[in-house]
Design a protein around this nucleic acid. Sequence first.
DNA 1: CTAAGTGCAAAGGCTTTGCATTTCT
DNA 2: AGAAATGCAAAGCCTTTGCACTTAG
Lengths: 158, 158
Amino acid sequence: MEDRIEKIKQQLQSQGYKLTLQREATVRVLLENEEDHLSAEDVFMLVKDKAPEIGLATVYRTLELLTELHVVEKMNFGDGVARYDLRNDSAHHHHHHLICVQCGALDEIMEDWLEPLEIRVTEEFGFTVLDHRLDFQGICRRCNEKNKAQQPPQEESK
Amino acid sequence: MEDRIEKIKQQLQSQGYKLTLQREATVRVLLENEEDHLSAEDVFMLVKDKAPEIGLATVYRTLELLTELHVVEKMNFGDGVARYDLRNDSAHHHHHHLICVQCGALDEIMEDWLEPLEIRVTEEFGFTVLDHRLDFQGICRRCNEKNKAQQPPQEESK
DNA sequence: CTAAGTGCAAAGGCTTTGCATTTCT
DNA sequence: AGAAATGCAAAGCCTTTGCACTTAG
C-alpha cells in the first residue's frame, strides 16, 4: 500500500510535478477504493475527509494529470459521468463489464478474454492495440431470477 | 431504403407514436449516413436541409425515442458527445471499433467476434446479453507507418 | 524565491425541460 | 377535438478555465 503510493509519488516527481497534500490524498482515495469506479464527484467527497479544504477543480485537475501519466484510466459508461480507475500496469488489468439494464448493477469479469482478438486486430488491421474496453449490456443473474419468479409485465415501465 | 423507412414508421405507429415530418426527416438522415456515428448536432445540421424549421431539442427527443425503440443505438466514445447509430436488428449488427489515439481515426470491424464470449458470459455469470460494445484503442496502420518512416520524438506533444 | 498548484467562482459544452403553440390521428 | 409533438429559450449537469493567492522544491 505505502509502497504503491511511493511509486506513484516518484512517478509524479520524475516528470517534474509537485507532490502536494491534495494529490497524495487523492491517490490514497483511489488506492483505498480500487474496486470501485469512482466519479470525480465521488473522489471529491471521499478526499474531503483527508483534505477538507480541497476543491472539486483540483480533483478534476489531479485526475486528469494521473490519466496523462497512465496512473489511472478514465472511463465512460454512457451515463454522462467520467469514472476513474487505478491502473494495475503490471499485468494487463483489462477487466470487462457486465452492466445490468434493469437494476443498473455493474459486475466485472476480471480475466482478460481478448488476447486472441487483439492478435487478430494486429494481424488483420495493422493496428497496435494499447487498450481495450469490453462491456456487455443485459440482464444480470439476480434480475433474471426475479423476473422468472414473478412473471414480469410485457412493457417496460418508462 | 424506402422499405426500411416504412418499417420504422410502422414500428413507431405500433407503439402509438405519431409520425411527424421531423421524425421522418431524422430517420432519413440516419439511413443516409448509416456508416457514420453522428452526434445529435450532426444530425441536426443534416436534418435542417430536409426540415429547416426543426429544433435541436426535437432532434434530441427523436433520437431518445428511437433509442428506446431500439431503432438506434446510443454510443459514447468518451469525448463527451453521444453518437447514434442505426441498428441493423436483423443480424447482430454489433461492430467493433478501432480508435486511433494518435490521429483520432475511427475504423470498424464489421464482423461480430464476440459470440463465443457471450456464451461464456451467459453460462458463467447467468447474465443475459442484450448488447455489447468492444472498442480497441491504439495506433492505426497509417500512423504506425508514418511513425516508422520518421522516427518519432520520445515525448508526446502535450 | 519562483514556478507550479490551489480554491473559488464564473464560464463552457452537451443535453434536458417548461411552456405556449402547432400538428397528427 | 384532444392528446402528442414541436420550437424556443431557459435551466441542468458535468467539466474546464481565469485569476489572485499559496506552497513545494
